[in-house]
Design a binder for these strands. Sequence first.
DNA 1: AACCATTGAGCAAACGTTTGCGCAAAATTA
DNA 2: TAATTTTGCGCAAACGTTTGCTCAATGGTT
Lengths: 339, 339
Amino acid sequence: MSDKPTTIKEIAKILKISVSTVSRALNDHSSIGLTTKMRVKKLATELNYEPNQKAIQFLQGKSHIIGVILPELSESFFSTAISGIEDVAYKRNYTVLLAQSHDDADREKLLVEKMKTQRVDGLLVSVSKTTSTYEHFEVFKKLNIPVVFFDRIPPIKDIHYVASNLENGTYEAVNFLLKKGHRTIGMINGPTTLVASHERKEGYIKAMISNRLKFDPSLIVSCDLSESGTIEVMNTMLNHRRKPTAIVTFNDYVALFAMRYTRSLELEGIDFVSYANLPIINYMDYTPIASVEQFPYKQGKKAADILIDLINRPKNETGTEQAYFNVVVESELIIPNPK
Amino acid sequence: MSDKPTTIKEIAKILKISVSTVSRALNDHSSIGLTTKMRVKKLATELNYEPNQKAIQFLQGKSHIIGVILPELSESFFSTAISGIEDVAYKRNYTVLLAQSHDDADREKLLVEKMKTQRVDGLLVSVSKTTSTYEHFEVFKKLNIPVVFFDRIPPIKDIHYVASNLENGTYEAVNFLLKKGHRTIGMINGPTTLVASHERKEGYIKAMISNRLKFDPSLIVSCDLSESGTIEVMNTMLNHRRKPTAIVTFNDYVALFAMRYTRSLELEGIDFVSYANLPIINYMDYTPIASVEQFPYKQGKKAADILIDLINRPKNETGTEQAYFNVVVESELIIPNPK
DNA sequence: AACCATTGAGCAAACGTTTGCGCAAAATTA
DNA sequence: TAATTTTGCGCAAACGTTTGCTCAATGGTT
């Protein structure tokens, strides 16, 4: 039938009234008579009228769109997070403009530009691993468009962010192993440059100290997280003068590599604890005996909520200092029911 | 510094030239002198000018946004697909507006509405499991906004879609098992209502026939895909007068359930073949010996490409019959290298 | 009968950009 | 030198909607 969508103008013309009246009638403005309202609304539904959001967005300078830039959509952690983000956005009547950086700093920069030209109302970012400069986010501050960082936080001041703190979860994990009787606990950590590695280490140390045990730094080894890297550090561990009876691994993949390797050596009895990235873990035969959960869905929700709050905060009272949301979603040790 | 973004008007005022000149200068229009162009561009970059996309989109009636509605973003298949979609969109200068239906038909309907009011240039949909009516997509046809269905295709005529055909992959899978010497091959299929179940069955039959073997329908059983359901049908299988020596399962989860169950019974020697949903499979100890891959990334790419082609197709020549893209991404049997 | 308050509705501007048309000045041709 | 083309730029409309202001008609109060 119709090729072009119905506009308010056409309704006005048909009803021989002005556009403003139609607009107000549709928006239930008080200054329009009931009869007129009825007539307008009736015709509007008949003609399948849909307000042109672009016009409205343009007029009002609001898009009701939030931009989301993540490293990898297909990674479990992020796809779960985006699910939470989208759920919040949906509930609060926003839509999600999505893009992935593939951990490429240049692409990320381009995407940020794109988000800017798309005039998103706010931006949610988990920065790429290769990102080392952060000026491309400055523009948003100037434009008064809120940016909330998420999980992977840039090391700069005066930003909003939501992240999980692994220290606590790690503390619980090590504590759990200690309670179980383990005294020599190894840790396969990630690259030392990562904040996440640092937090893991701190949690480890904290647990040892609070149990009045001596901390042996050589039981924590860095790993590039590949299978070969894992095997390499596993060998270091296993040849350590104090061979660990339990090992905390950087993530599920590393745990699986390590466990497979120990089985191939027909070693038994080493308990593994990992950091939950993968739902599939539950389907497996040999799994870590416990996992530190980072709640990506919750993190995503939280970040989106904060972002939308920021978008709708009462006009930036220049003068009052800006407050920054720094939310930490505490990680938690999950001990599955034994099957 | 600046609160509001720079506009073309301001540039014009500062340079004491008209807005149209500025616009043309920025767009490298041929009718503007080189010196003027330079002056304009220089000032534009100085002022950090960014064209207001909303205004442009509004003016031109194009948003350069494609809507994507998927059932579950956190499911591996879909998150991989969206990754492919986003990559294509990025390359072709579109942005992705993302939403998830959570397999809820009502929410899906709302989302479709939302996409409409957001005036997306095109829509990509994998319909929810509970969707049974399809009128909400009709509007898009009227508005001449292309819709491409993806993976989960509604059973209606005259639509564009991209899907994988499981018949071929299943054929290969069964053939592979036959070549390996198996003669009694079971299949744990999904609900009979699913197209996907039908395709699997057809592939199975085709393989049997082409090997001049008799097809025994009782070796194919339907399953609700839960763990208990899987165990139930496994019992049926194992008590079958012709006990299968190999089983094709509906997906990786079912395969894992079934394999775990057989191991708990200390049964050995049943070969499993599955349909690849999960990358993690590679990290596991006991895995299906082969998998039918559906290439979600490729499917996503393909669907996005078609959609964007449709958006940019030369004006709908009314009169010529509309052509419908029905693309089938052939599934393929993947046989991992033995570890 | 004169006045005021209320109700209902229209006019026109505004948002930022593109683009068809027009027009003057400069450059080319006859 | 006059006629013509080219070059460079401005004017104004258009996109669909919202909203402040204005204003006429109606009804109610003195």
